[in-house]
């Protein structure tokens, strides 16, 4: 069980390497539970690395970090089970249909089978489109599928890297509504985005990264 009194995310002087290059150079961040936080910064400022570190994918080489009270050095498995990361790549299998893709994640998360179709429906993919192979879908449709995979995971912390990319206007509106609903349901949402005005409209606050630190 996660510590309900703990912050959702707490990094102190975190240093994270991307290859041999330090992508986070002493970042300190506190994000409370149930917040939507916009992470902004120029290319190479460390936004993606911050999300990957918070997801337990990138190890901290210096500093301290906790997610939902779990130590990012020693309890990464616990962190991963409670977070959902949407990276630049969609993480889908091109030969499977949209529904089959989301069903894989539903099964891995222990969710009921019908939750997969419901999650796709929330992202505007239903009917024949849900039965279409992902490999034949547009980039925006794939992004919707990837977001449905995040939804079906029922994670406590959502870490989204440029989630609006490739989405059309309706898809962007659907996503914004989804994130607001996730916050209302108690999830913490961290969004790294260059589409700052859009996310700032519903975010509780923003974090600006520069040179791997919080500016």
């Amino acid at each position: 069980m996660s510590d309900v009194r703990a912050e959702a995310i707490e990094l102190r002087d975190a240093v994270v390497l991307y290859g041999a290059h330090p992508a986070l150079t002493g970042a300190s961040v506190r994000i409370g539970r149930g917040e939507i936080v916009l992470v902004e910064g120029a290319n190479g400022s460390g936004k993606s690395t911050l999300l990957r570190a918070c997801a337990g994918l990138k190890p901290l080489v210096r500093g301290e970090g906790r997610v939902l009270g779990f130590d990012l050095r020693h309890e990464r498995a616990e962190v991963r089970r409670r977070t959902a990361l949407l990276a630049h790549r969609d993480g889908l299998w091109a030969d499977l249909t949209a529904l089959e893709n989301v069903q894989v994640w539903a099964r891995l998360a222990g969710a009921a089978p019908d939750e997969a179709a419901a999650a796709l429906g929330r992202m505007g993919i239903a009917g024949p489109l849900a039965s279409r192979r992902v490999g034949s879908m547009s980039a925006g449709q794939k992004r919707r599928c990837a977001l449905a995979c995040v939804v079906v995971r029922r994670a406590e912390v959502w870490l989204l890297d440029e989630p609006h990319s490739a989405l059309d206007a309706q898809g962007r509106d659907d996503l914004d509504a989804l994130l607001v609903a996730a916050r209302a349901a108690g999830a913490t949402v961290v969004v790294a985005s260059h589409d700052t005005e859009r996310v700032a409209a519903f975010a509780d606050r923003r974090i600006v990264l520069s040179g791997g630190r919080v500016a």
Binding site: G56, L57, R80, R81, A84, L85, A87, R89, D90, A109
Partner: peptide, 13 residues
């Protein structure tokens, strides 16, 4: 190909 193996790791499977 599309980062699914990384996504599986990230999901704590």
């Amino acid at each position: 190909a599309d980062g699914a193996l990384e996504a599986i790791r990230a999901a704590g499977a």
